[in-house]
Design a protein around this nucleic acid. Structure first.
Lengths: 339, 339
DNA sequence: TTGTACGCGTTATCAA
DNA sequence: TTGATAACGCGTACAA
């Protein structure tokens, strides 16, 4: 690997001059700068990020925590889109990223020590179990962190609008005449609590009474569980006229079950999803769902973190909510005038 | 950040002793070693990977090339599963990874220079445009590389069994009486060529004549395109009795189109997918598809690369094929005895 | 405008 | 068994 010294020897200047010239320092004459750039190019010089980092205390490397118990992680379009967006944003800004985990190997690491070991300039927590002590150790440290869909004191958080999404859904389906609304929600995370809250608030506001049997739980992204919940709902004496699913993917499990019962969407029963995955626009009828702007969420997380890193003095923690929008597909029937 | 020197001062030994003790060198007495470990723990010492790497010329960081023109990249379950598996395997072995791209930032990079800049010990090419000159630059270098689903001379390649998958599919559906078989294949990559070859060979062997109109192209993972191809196939005078799709996800586009024509799967028309995504087992009827073992592919790629890195002397390039298996779902009708 | 020299935190070699 | 010291490649304060 050719290094500064090699270039210096060829150019007949000192190693310091080369370093300055390559970073286009105004200290060096344009003539010498050009010459050194040329030689460096010809010799195939590539800087050593590690040596640079050692000196500057900046790695231009961001740690990303992306831990998902269910192992669905990357398969979940909400997260994979977000991750793509994070990567692309970081890339444009000249940053790389490393997945941070409890690294096994020669040394066992915690999330924090792993991030420190790699000298990450900062960390984005895309998804994780926020009760994990390792997360708290990380949040309690001086590491610069941005969290997604969960907020910690004095930390910047990028949130999807879980506090209003279900409200918008309920408003819409109520306008189409539905009052027997079932809600299958995901496992009890902060996100789920927000959505449930949003759901209940909207129902109260509209004076809709939701029996306990209409509220079910099925883990996110596990269509089988949503299928089971659907079956239970369909076996009730008083069936709901509309079922809201934890996410679009889970809806697939419900769809299968609904068809098995010989029912048709939306004529016999209406359904609503959450996320707005690509497939929701491909299937016919197109799914009515709440589209989360995961791309923007990822982008903002990356930008806010970089800003914190590059302008530490100006840092003030923020709580940014990225709003989504209702995709009015064709899976909710207008039953207002049908009675 | 506490460093070796800090520990040395506290322990009253030299910095070299601390370094050796922490790596459990036999040069250092057990007593001193224990003491130093204890102090290090108490002081919260975390090594600096960059300084270490500078000295050892090993970064324990693997570059992963994961470039997808269609941007579906992470959303494609075949690749996302593979990537998860790569990450998990690397993690257990004590390696991190960095996505390698034509990094923009202060300096523009090629894939190779990016990998060198980060001092990657090796690179896994998970998916990329193999015609890209940057890929060839990378392959022509002395960087240790393992490729997936594409092989280069003197390089280890992990391949899915694209050369036999379609043969197995054709054998199966032929046994159920199908001879009017349409094949919608993906865009023309090496993978596609292998599959097409496998398809044609099997048809010839079984004396099945496939009219040109039965061979269609639709980009992978774009259900809309497969939907269009399906529509064209269904409008033929002599409709196929079975359609093979580029992948399970693309099948969704076909399914929608088939239902729009008032046809039912598999009674009116049979279908087969490729990949074996999770959803293929959720939908009813369960999809008949060829399951690629993407988890094993990712694992082997990581293991082979690490082996090359850690035992460079013993390296011999290999071409490893990971076999998949036919998932016999319920989307292919037995029409053998129906005539 | 250019050069010199030191230090970033390690590991490795050699001497004690 | 331990210590002193020289690298690794780069950036930078200071000297020339």
């Amino acid at each position: 690997m050719v290094k500064l010294k090699d270039i210096a020897d060829v150019a007949g200047v000192s190693i310091g001059t080369v370093s300055k010239a390559l970073s286009n320092s105004h200290e060096i004459s344009i003539k010498v700068t050009k010459k050194i750039h040329k030689i460096a190019r010809e010799m195939g010089y590539i800087a050593n990020s590690q040596a640079r980092s050692l000196k500057t205390n900046r790695s231009y490397n961001i740690g990303v925590v992306y831990i998902d118990k269910s192992k669905a992680g990357l398969k979940h379009e909400y997260f994979s889109t977000m991750l793509s967006s994070i990567q692309e944003t970081l890339r444009i800004k000249g940053y790389d990223f490393t997945f941070i985990s409890n690294l096994v190997g020669t040394t066992k690491h915690t999330l924090l020590s792993h991030a420190r070991y790699r000298r990450c300039d900062g960390v984005i927590i895309a998804t994780a179990d926020y009760d994990d002590p390792e997360i708290h150790q990380l949040m309690a440290s001086d590491m610069k962190v941005v969290t997604i869909d969960h907020d910690f004191p004095n930390r910047t958080a990028i949130m999807s609008d879980n506090n209003i999404g279900l409200g918008k859904i309920v408003d819409y389906i109520y306008k189409l005449g539905h009052t027997k609304i079932a809600f299958i929600h995901g496992e009890m995370t902060q996100v789920t609590k927000d959505r449930l809250e949003s759901f209940k608030t909207a129902c109260q506001r509209l004076n809709i009474d939701i029996p306990q049997a209409y509220i079910k739980q099925a883990d996110y992204h596990l269509p089988k569980q949503s299928g089971i919940a659907t079956r239970e709902l369909l076996s009730l004496d008083e069936k709901p006229t509309c079922i809201i699913y934890p996410d679009d993917y889970s809806f697939m499990g419900g769809m299968t079950e609904i068809e098995k019962h010989g029912l048709s969407i939306p004529n016999d029963i209406s359904v609503v999803g959450y996320d707005g995955i690509y497939l929701s626009r491909i299937l016919r009828p197109t799914l009515t769902t709440y589209v989360q702007n995961s791309e923007e969420i990822g982008k903002q997380a990356a930008l806010k973190l970089i800003n914190h890193i590059e302008n530490p003095k100006e840092f003030i923690s923020e709580r940014i909510t990225i709003t989504g929008k209702l995709q009015k597909g064709h899976t909710v029937k207008d039953i207002k005038n049908t009675f």
